[in-house]
Structure formats: structure tokens, C-alpha cells
Design a protein around this nucleic acid. Structure first.
Lengths: 375, 375
DNA sequence: GCTTTTTGGTTAATCGTTTAATCATCTAAC
DNA sequence: GTTAGATGATTAAACGATTAACCAAAAAGC
């Protein structure tokens, strides 16, 4: 703990007295006595306290460089005695990273996506990253705007559940070298990392459940406009099943929707009823609840008049008085998987694209029952 | 549009040839031909394109400095021809701002807070800021951790719905000069900006509604542990009403809870039933739904056996089969008001603290009815 | 004892902006 | 024809961190 070494600087500190020395944004309320004026403790402060150069402190804290273990410990101690933490702006500038990721989802009001966000945030936080969440509400312009915003913000990567499988943002982001993970649908022309739910087995389980109850006229909703790989896979599975089990699919039973929330569920009821189904498979819980509301308004009861099968199994479908039969998706795991994928790609940008397929299982509740005898 | 001026540099560019010139983190996949390699267009690029100095470009884009209007326009054109946008890290470093705000809420799974976040995000986005959302799940340690994280991230301010009215983080943040807006409760010893709901009129309206139906034994739940200014105000209103209308308050009818979600609603049912109420006023929708579930499990029906009055009026309470009577809060507006407050304080740190009180109104649905004759 | 290697640091450049201070140049004034 | 003022752009110094290159002193090799 001797006096700091005399610092024999060989190079003079650049010119006797420099003429220009502005002091930008000199906050009037600067650090009081020795106050921790808003985390203003810089690495230089720590260096001064240790009688070392900032470079050494940086090395000590980052674990790099050769140095005496004693020094490293001393620096560490001083750093957290002062409550030092590196300025993200400064290291971001130098390292060209923001430690911030973007998550763009269809609907922030849907608890499904809340859970996904929670899973992703947890994994990212453990890796020292932050998550910016944005909801595009199934509006392509909003999606584009959010992506632009995130790019401006220089996020290190984006997790996106895209509106459709041919959104232009996707190839653009990949071309710009931005790590990208898609949720649910893939992109038609641009391979990317990707997390999805097995589109076949769980849906088949649901359809079999309905068929076992005696349903033959089963309607299904599909999301994502004309172009969604996940919707197409669902459709394929549905068609295959209907052909084998129920005298062929009928186009009127297939209803394509632009959004999957309460409102569009209510609005979809006339289209759904047109083909006189005895059961409906909805794309998610919220949509199912909207449909259910529309059915009630039309004087139809679930499941007495019509069975309803949802997807997601958020806590909504378990509420007393609601009790939807639903395909339970591993929501947290979806978020976690996406976060892990994007961290891996950031670490190793050249790797091949990976697709993670997660399972789902049927949670039978009270929205499905045998069809009315009168069909 | 002439050739770039000959740049008569009076000061030579420092030393014939500088010895040290490291190239940190030289990404192998550098900008291809003239590619926009991940938004890498810097202000220097724009300056070169215009034959101007970076300073001039900066001034032109920021609107500062004296300059020919023609130049300004030329720079603007070049900037968005190149798709330039300033690096947040660089300007953050220079300007000591991050253009990022933190929002710390009790429960991300509660749609109430989703709406608040949406409102806040909208106002902030318009001001060019971003929002980092974190959920403390009514756990003081999580709250402390999130606040620490946000400080490390150097957010420009925090919007917090604190766990209690004596959390240590609050005075600490104020002392550090960090703009702070509290939601719902105030802090006991530290004045701050603050957004809340009128704790009297709406609750009184709800209580009168129940009293008019014939209820005298009305239970109420209170959040925030022992110390929450909002809970105390609610309690005061409740006590006053009960004294006038219902033969004095009874301590057993007052139930204090640590968290307000489905799970703790279910768990609170025995405590709530102990004093044999005919109606229950729950602190929010989610808690009310949990209570409702617990009551169902105990063989009691709402509203036939017990009336239930919720607060928040999220879309949950409007679902068919749920239909809770609830106090409708202006959720979006809460978020918007908080965002505006924090922006104002950032702009003018010295101003006096402001408290914004928003109204609420009763949405009567089907969870309230006259008490059973057999009381 | 002199050179080489190792150890434990330091220096200076750099990331991309902003901005106070400065400076050329052109115009108006005396 | 100087001088003074405006005008319009430039210079260079920050902001706070990281890191390649360098270097002094101690240890090792011959």
C-alpha cells in the first residue's frame, strides 16, 4: 500500500498547454463532494484509486492480459468498493455491441407472448443482455417500423414472429448481417434460425379428440394471410386428417384470418358458421375467446351447440367459467430457445441455421363435447 | 457541387506517421463493396459525400450552429440517401444520455400492466426513447435487482410501481439524481413524481353499489405489505364508509396480501371467508379471478353466494363466463401520464414534484348481486 | 557478465458523436 | 484601403472504454 509509483511518463502530455478544452453539457449539479453522482464513477477513477493505468484496470476487470493476481484482486476490490460499472455507451462504441436484443411479437396483450418474453428475458439477462419488446399487432407497417427502430438502436439481434413468411424485413436483416431468430413461421426464401411448435402431432391429437367425440364437420382458422409456412403445415395436417377421417376436407371449413385477438374472433363468427361446423379449431386462446363471445352473442353455447378447441393454453383458458380445451404450448421454453439461438449466432455468426421444434400436448377441458344429435 | 475544397489544414495531422494504429475487433465480414454492412454508415461517410467536415454535418442534422440553408438541405439529403442514423452509443457517450427508460411493474402477466406499458412506450417512442420493461413479481429482491440492472444500463429514468412505500431503492435513485416516477403508491419519506388513481371516489362508488344491493358485510383486500400509501388511502375510505353505512368496520373483513395474482387469490379464500362476508372487494382483476376460482373450489358461486367486485377492468373481466363487476381504470392514460412526467423531469430536473390523479368508474357486470336472504 | 526471455505493466489510438473555440472569407463601414 | 462585423465552415477536445504495440525491470540462459 505504498505511495503510487512516480509515473515516469516518457512522452510529454502533448504540447505545453493545449488551447482548446471545451466542457460539454457541464451539468450544473455536478457530483457534490465525493458523491456517486448517478453512477458517474469511471474506470479512470478506479485507476486513480489503485495507482494504475486505465488499461490495467480494464484488463484486470475483463480478465484479459497478463498481470499479477494480486493486482487483479486489488482492482476488483477497488472497483466494487466504488460501485464501478462500465458505461454501456463507451464499451458499446468501442466493441460495436449494444447488449440489447429486440423482440417483435404480434400482440403484447396476449399472455402467450408475455410468457415468451419472460423466457427470453431470463436467458438474456443471464448473459448480460437486455430485451426491447415491441408489438406489431399483425400490422405489416408497424412491424417494419419496429424493425427500423431496432436497427437504429443498433440492437445486437432480433427475435421476430413475423406477420407473414414473405416479409421483406427478414432478408434485409439477414443481408445486413443482423442475427435473427424467427418464431412460428419460417421465411419462404430466406433461411434463418427458427423456433416453432411441431405443427403436426399436437394438432392431430386435437383433431382425433374431436373426431372421437363424434365431430365430422370441423372448422379451422389459419393465420398469417396468404403466406405462412406454419399455417400451411397446419393446413396440410388438417387436410390429411379430414380426408382420412371425415369424408374429405371442405374449403368452407377453412377460414383465414389476418389477426388473432378477441376482436377478430368475434368478427370471424359469421364466416365460421357459414359452413355449419360442429366444432372449431382456433389458432390461439385469445381468438378462441373472441369466437366464443361471438357465438354467445349469436345465441350458441359452447360446448352444447358447438365445440371449441384453442391453442396456447394460457391461464385464460383455465379460468372457471372459461375452461377451454386447448393445446398447451411450452411458452417459456419458446422464449428461452429463441434467446439461446440468438446468443449462439452472435457468438458464431457463420454457423448453419438451426430450427428448434418444440412439442405441445392437449389439455382437455370443457369447451369440447359430442355434437348435438340434430347435427 | 464543385470539387471538394482543398482542405488547407494548418495543423499537420499529428506526426509524420503514427506508430500505433490497432484495428480492434476487425470483423472478418467487413462491409462488402459499398454495402450497408449493418448500419455502418457513420457521420464521416456523410461528411465525405458532401465534402464537408463531420462537425458541419452534425450541426446540419441537429439544427444547431450557423450555416447556409443550402448546405443544411444538402447534408440532409445525403444523410438519408445513405440511410445514415447516428450511433446511439456514440451520442450516448458524448451526451450522457441513453434515450432508454426503465419500467418496473409488479406483474408482467397481468394485462393491466401490459396496457400501462403500451401507453408509456407510445409516448416515449414519439420522443425518440425506448422502454425496458421488468417485472418484480411483488418480490423486493427482484425489484432491487431490476433497479440495479437499469442503473448499470444507465437508463435516463425509471417508472416504478414499488412493492411498498418504504423501499430503499426510491430515495437511493432520487439521491443519485435519477428521474423517477412512482405508480400507485407514493414513498413515505421521499417525495417524487407520481401517477395514481383517485383512491376515494371510485372505491366509494363500488361500496355504495354493494350497499345498495343490500350488502353490509363487505370484505376488502389490501396490497403492499404493511406500508403502502395507496392501500392506506383505500383503507381509510373503506373504514369511513363502513362506519357510516354498515355498523362500523370489522378488522376481520380487512385482508392484507403480499401479491395480487391468480395464485394468491386462490390462497386468500380461507382468510376472506373467515369473517363471513357477503361481498368481497379485490385489489385487481387477476386477484379477483383467483378468489373466484377458490370460491368455486369451495363450492360457493359468484354472485349467488357471494358478490365480487374487482379493480382494473382488464379485458379479462369482460369475458363471457367471467363478467366481473370492476372499477375501470384508465390504463393507457396511466402509462402515458407517467411517461410524460418523466420526460418533463428529464428536460427540467429541478422542477417541483408533481402528482397526477386519474379517475376511474364502475363497470357493473354479473359478479355482484343482492346477498342471499339467509345471509 | 552480457544477452535473451518473461513478467507486469503503460501508451496511445480508436470507436462515432457533439460542441466550444477558432478561423477564413466576404461585406459593410469609416 | 484598412478595419470591424457577419457569415459559414473547420479544428480539436472531449465522452469512457478496449486493446495492439511497446517498454522497464526482473529472471533466466549461456
Amino acid at each position: 500500500m505504498g505511495a503510487p509509483p512516480p509515473l515516469s511518463r516518457r512522452h510529454p502530455p502533448r504540447g505545453g498547454d493545449t488551447p482548446l478544452r471545451p466542457k460539454p453539457a457541464a451539468t450544473p449539479d455536478d457530483a457534490p463532494p465525493g458523491g456517486t453522482g448517478r453512477g458517474r464513477i469511471t474506470i479512470a477513477e478506479v485507476a486513480r484509486r489503485c495507482g494504475l493505468s486505465v488499461a490495467t484496470v480494464s484488463n484486470a476487470l475483463s480478465g484479459g492480459g497478463r498481470m499479477a493476481e494480486g493486482t487483479r484482486a486489488r482492482v476488483r476490490a477497488a472497483a466494487d468498493a466504488l460501485g464501478y460499472s462500465a458505461s454501456p455507451a463507451a464499451r458499446g462504441l468501442r466493441l460495436r455491441r449494444s447488449w440489447t436484443l429486440g423482440l417483435v411479437i404480434p400482440d403484447i396483450a396476449n399472455p402467450m407472448y408475455g410468457e415468451i418474453a419472460r423466457g427470453a428475458a431470463e436467458v438474456l439477462e443471464a448473459a448480460g443482455c437486455h430485451l426491447l419488446v415491441a408489438s406489431h399487432d399483425s400490422c405489416p407497417e408497424r412491424q417494419a417500423r419496429h424493425v427500423r427502430n431496432l436497427l437504429r438502436q443498433r440492437v445486437d439481434g432480433v427475435i421476430l414472429q413475423p406477420w407473414s413468411s414473405r416479409d421483406e424485413e427478414v432478408p434485409a436483416m439477414v443481408a445486413a448481417g443482423l442475427p435473427l431468430v424467427l418464431l412460428a413461421r419460417r421465411h419462404l426464401s430466406q433461411p434463418t434460425d427458427h423456433v416453432t411448435i411441431d405443427p403436426r402431432a399436437p394438432l392431430l391429437e386435437g383433431l382425433r379428440h374431436l373426431a372421437a367425440l363424434g365431430h365430422r364437420r370441423i372448422a379451422i382458422t389459419l393465420m398469417g394471410g396468404r403466406a405462412s409456412t406454419s399455417a400451411e403445415e397446419r393446413l396440410e395436417t388438417y387436410r390429411g386428417f379430414m380426408e382420412r377421417q371425415a369424408g374429405g376436407p371442405e374449403e368452407g371449413l377453412i377460414v383465414r384470418l389476418a389477426r388473432a385477438d378477441l376482436e377478430s374472433g368475434r368478427a370471424a363468427v359469421p364466416a365460421l358458421l357459414a359452413a355449419r361446423p360442429t366444432a372449431i379449431v382456433a389458432s390461439n386462446d385469445l381468438l378462441a375467446l373472441g369466437i366464443r363471445e361471438g357465438l354467445h352473442a349469436a345465441g350458441l353455447r359452447v360446448p352444447e351447440d358447438l365445440s371449441l378447441l384453442a391453442v396456447d393454453d394460457t391461464y385464460l383458458s383455465a379460468l372457471p367459467g372459461v375452461e377451454l380445451t386447448s393445446l398447451e404450448l411450452p411458452k417459456r421454453q419458446i422464449g428461452e430457445a429463441a434467446a439461446r439461438l440468438i446468443l449462439e449466432r452472435i457468438a458464431e455468426p457463420g454457423r448453419a441455421c438451426e430450427s428448434i421444434v418444440l412439442p405441445a400436448r392437449l389439455a382437455v377441458r370443457r369447451s369440447t363435447a359430442p355434437p348435438r344429435p340434430a347435427g
